[in-house]
Nucleic acid binder design. Structure first.
Lengths: 150, 150
DNA sequence: CTATATAGTTAACCGCACTTAACTAACTAG
DNA sequence: CTAGTTAGTTAAGTGCGGTTAACTATATAG
């Protein structure tokens, strides 16, 4: 019934709308938190990847080790990150989220997704079911992209 | 069958996955373009809202008129924006996208959504149909949020 | 016509994320 | 043990987006 082209068109339209909304809430929250974008980026990186070293961070942000070290140092001072020696390699550091850092991040995700709840009120129960199963298909396909296999 | 709660959970899970992917491509493109985030933000604003004055921009970025004026000035110099007098009010300016600016933006959206095409290859035709109709539901609901009415 | 408000620009300055370069300390290979 | 590499820090300096303050020019109200 529908071509892959139609699929792309609809996906993109949705993506535009979705990004627009999420970004708005996102940047609003980032501003109100008083943190800078790179600082938030570090928090997110560690949240997803778990504790990591300075080099991991500098690689992720595409900056020098020096820059990452300075950033992390400041954020440790703010109580957002914990920095400890790596027991296996005493040159390296293990940077992890503090409770405060984790709380901040989760509140951010909360703010970013708040409007999603309003969305639900504009759908019937049956429509919600339809959306849920469709999103599950997308999630599966999305994960399949990560594990390309053959 | 499914509660609004279940809807929220699935939506958020999808949102996380989606944002993660899109943001990655996005920031990669922003970096490669040589533009800064606020500069891109101005481009997007004008792309969506059409020509606007300095004040509109400063309001959108939540900065002073001075900052917006300076940024716009620089971007006019780069050939990304056009700045003209507003014929109705000669104090005001009309800032619009140049062809170069528009092209840059559209290539960015392209990069951001490239992975969506790969997604389609992991779904059957029937699954794609299912997704399309679900997304259309979401789009409608999303638009309903903008026009709250009663 | 005079007052005042509005749109935008300009200049001087500040903070912050970056860079490069020099350094310390720990691991690794010969 | 020595030489060289790797992880991270520190210091000095740069660029850019941001601010406030002073200014120009147009529009509007009495």
């Amino acid at each position: 019934m529908s071509s892959p082209k139609q699929f792309n068109i609809t996906m993109r339209e949705w993506a535009e709308s979705f990004m627009h909304r999420s970004m708005r809430e996102w940047s609003r929250y980032v501003k109100s938190s008083g943190l800078s974008m790179p600082q938030f980026s570090i928090l997110m990186k560690i949240y997803h990847r778990g504790g990591c070293g300075i080099s991991d961070i500098s690689q992720h942000l595409d900056v020098t080790n020096a820059a990452a070290s300075q950033l992390v140092d400041k954020m440790v001072g703010m109580g957002l990150l914990d920095r400890a020696e790596d027991p296996n390699d005493r040159r390296a550091k293990q940077v992890t989220l503090s409770n405060k850092g984790r709380a901040l991040l989760e509140k951010g995700a909360e703010a970013r997704n708040r409007w999603v709840e309003d969305l639900a009120t504009h759908l019937t129960a049956q429509q919600r079911d339809e959306v849920i199963s469709a999103l599950k298909l997308l999630l599966e396909a999305s994960h399949a992209l990560d594990a390309p296999k053959s």
